[in-house]
Design a protein around this nucleic acid. Structure first.
Lengths: 206, 206
DNA sequence: GTCTATACTTGGATAGAC
DNA sequence: GTCTATCCAAGTATAGAC
């Protein structure tokens, strides 16, 4: 039956959505099969039928959103841009990540990975994927710039990722939505000065 | 009885230590009263006698280490230092935080705060304390430098804290102890160049 | 202050009816 | 594919003996 299968797919989506929202709003520690089912108004047993166990569901939920985000990143950052334009786009993407809860859920699952080998393996692979992606961005962005002599793409990508995750531990903590905008705001003149100065004098002049 | 009270104090210490180590090694999600008691080889009921509930114990455990770390920070960063010396000391302190597990436990509890108002309130206060401390460091460090025009202490402190927390989500993930050293290593020439260039030309020249 | 025993709750997971 | 019912494991917390 095509109809039955279509309904199964729709249910899967509902479960994935509810799982994501539960982690986002209640944290990993409070994300039980029962809590997810309550939020999505469906039967708790469906989780095990469709996903086997709760952690597998959570991984599927974060992957689902993660793939959409990855696609969006490619779209927005694919075309060439000068540094200022690039920064504006990166900020847009970051805001989307915060608003959608993606970054919160990723941070929650990273923290939970600590005590769960299966989760850890999976999240490690996901984060390494983002690390490689970000490192490529740095390479492309730094290509031909004097800054290339000063910034190692992989290390810089690691720092960006860590900053990203760390912000998303702090944001739910104080509930201050201005934290991230402020950081972008204040980082801007610093970055602009660095780019200008290095371009003018080169990284090795002293 | 002084002896009985002394033993009670010793037990409290054992419980605090076991609680800290359990969060560090097994993650918040696996940190139950039973798991803590198992690790410390004492009776599970003692936790409730001494601390009332598990979360209170965890907060006491992170505070105990946090206060020691704060003291250490003051000692090491109290005396004047040029930028290079300052960076070396900051790195030493950071390595200690990672080795001791302090940063991991803080990150775990921040993540867990998401779903627990009491925990959140407490961790928020602790993090704001560190935020103020770090902002003061920036103020002192930037005083009289041309960089002061480019770096807002509070925003910079927030970024450092986020970076710190984020690193401690990533480190247990891949178990790579070279992650942090590498970051310091690669950041060094960038920082050195920035300091030199800004000192030579000032932040507003273009 | 510490231990044993236990009441109670929540959650993971499955069997079997529909 | 979904629902009801249920079993079992693990955890919180307390009472009461020592």
């Amino acid at each position: 039956m095509l109809k039955a299968s279509a309904q199964g797919t729709a249910t899967r989506e509902r479960i994935l959505e509810a799982a994501f929202e539960t982690v986002r709003r209640e944290g990993y520690a409070n994300t039980s099969a029962r809590a997810i089912a309550r939020r999505g108004s469906f039967n708790q047993a469906l989780i095990f039928y469709h996903f086997g166990e709760v952690n597998q569901l959570l991984l599927a939920a974060v992957d689902r959103v993660g793939e959409a985000r990855r696609k969006r990143y490619r779209e927005v950052l694919g075309s060439p841009a000068d540094p200022l334009e690039f920064a504006a786009r990166a900020r847009l993407l970051y805001d989307e990540d915060v608003d959608s809860g993606h970054s919160t859920v990723v941070a929650e699952l990273c923290a939970a990975s600590s005590g769960n080998p299966v989760l850890r393996e999976h999240m490690l692979a996901r984060m390494e994927s983002w690390l490689g992606f970000t490192a490529e961005l740095f390479k492309r962005f730094l290509g031909g710039s004097p800054l290339a002599a000063l910034i190692e793409p992989k290390a810089a990508a690691g720092a960006v990722l860590a900053l990203y995750l760390g912000m998303d531990l702090l944001i739910p903590l104080d509930g201050d939505p201005r934290r991230a905008p402020d950081l972008f705001h204040h980082a801007h003149p610093l970055a602009a000065t660095l780019v200008t100065l290095v371009a003018a004098r080169g990284p090795h002049s002293a």
